[in-house]
Write a protein that binds this DNA or RNA. Structure first.
Lengths: 206, 206
DNA sequence: GCAATTGGATCCGCTTGCGTATCTTAACCT
DNA sequence: AGGTTAAGATACGCAAGCGGATCCAATTGC
């Protein structure tokens, strides 16, 4: 900004305030222009600062990328409503709301990054998340079995993670969040029947 | 190539021969470097020719892209083996083999193209394929119902297309073809049970 | 065999982003 | 208050790709 804003004293950000402003701008650029539009010039311009400020903190583009993603990637909270169906719906809605853009970003817009660095989505995830816990839906199913809502037979990961995969699939196809009816449909007409439950045999119908 | 090759007469391609060589090179560049690496210079170099040759034929980058994709996008053949399970396996294997790279390319590497042009995957598909026929899996299910293999109740598109979606999902996640066991698993442990069939109740087991 | 095409090499000016250096001055510390 | 830190503007040479123009010669059609 070479312009003075209004007549107020020129404001100059520092430290964490500045870093947050920059990673916010970086995120916006990433979402709007993809990894190849993710240039130091674009991020600096968007953040209202200049390239040297970025280079001083993140010498490599990858450093800036990681810092940006870290700010926007939160581990999912695992719901516990007492009903498998409600747990599933709640979790999928959270995924849809919180991760709608992130999933697109990671899987699609970062494809160039993965190719350039020779890395993989899993490499990136292990840099963002501490450990590999059991997948969210496996936790839901385990708890439902412990409650007696499901019989305690082994189930394939494919069936257990099916709703997650289908929602992710729809997000990738539409490049955005998924309508809520799709989530309900996936749970009620695909997943619960496969597990041997009918949607309304459980408590807490919809 | 300013080098002469061996001592043979310098060969100069023309017409269709040249165009095929160029679109082949363009495809290779697209697969290896994505849409942003899909430059006239890179394609020309790869094809062993020069930029003006490309510009003479395809003035816009999009023209070259469409010409390239057209060469590599074939409508799927719909199998008819007499058994729903075999039909499904055959179709999914064909998708996996023929479209493994294409799906990745279209969905992921062309994300930048879609954003830049403001277009959509469906826009592109309608430029590559003539009409929108009924989806492949709907045809399989209709035929199975006509044979009496399935009862003739209405089924949601979600359930009908489930195997296609799951294979596509796996291809997108692994950025490549899917192991054959996944295909069998999807059909036998997910789809057929959902349709009310057990994998081996039909003829022609695996 | 000769003339018309057209493939292929080379060069142009332009733009964008890179990564760094320099300089000012606002914001903070003690 | 005075000194230190670092934000932010500006400029740099470099490289890649763009979209053409120019030129030569290999191929083809007649």
């Amino acid at each position: 900004m070479s312009e003075r804003h209004g007549e107020g004293a020129p404001t100059r950000r520092r430290g964490a305030t500045l870093e947050n402003a920059i990673t916010d701008a970086a995120w916006a650029v990433l979402v709007e222009h993809g990894y190849n539009g993710f240039t130091y010039e674009a991020v600096a311009a968007r953040a209202g600062t200049s390239k040297p400020v970025l280079y001083r903190r993140w010498p490599q583009r990858e450093d800036l990328l990681i810092a940006t993603l870290t700010r926007y990637w939160r581990p999912l909270g695992i719901p516990d409503t007492g009903s498998l169906r409600q747990d599933a719906l709640t979790l999928l809605r959270a995924v849809n709301a919180e991760r709608g853009r992130t999933v697109i970003l990671l899987r699609i817009h970062l494809a160039d990054y993965f190719r350039e660095t020779g890395t993989d989505f899993n490499d990136l995830r292990s840099r963002l998340l501490p450990a590999d816990r059991t997948p969210p839906f496996a936790q839901l199913v385990d708890r439902a079995a412990a409650r007696g809502e499901l019989t305690d037979v082994p189930r394939s990961a494919r069936v257990v993670n099916l709703p997650f995969d289908l929602v992710r699939h729809d997000m990738l196809m539409t490049m955005g969040p998924v309508p809520d009816e799709s989530i309900v449909e996936i749970v009620d007409t695909v997943w619960l029947p496969l597990l041997g439950l009918s949607p309304h045999a459980t408590h807490a119908g919809h």
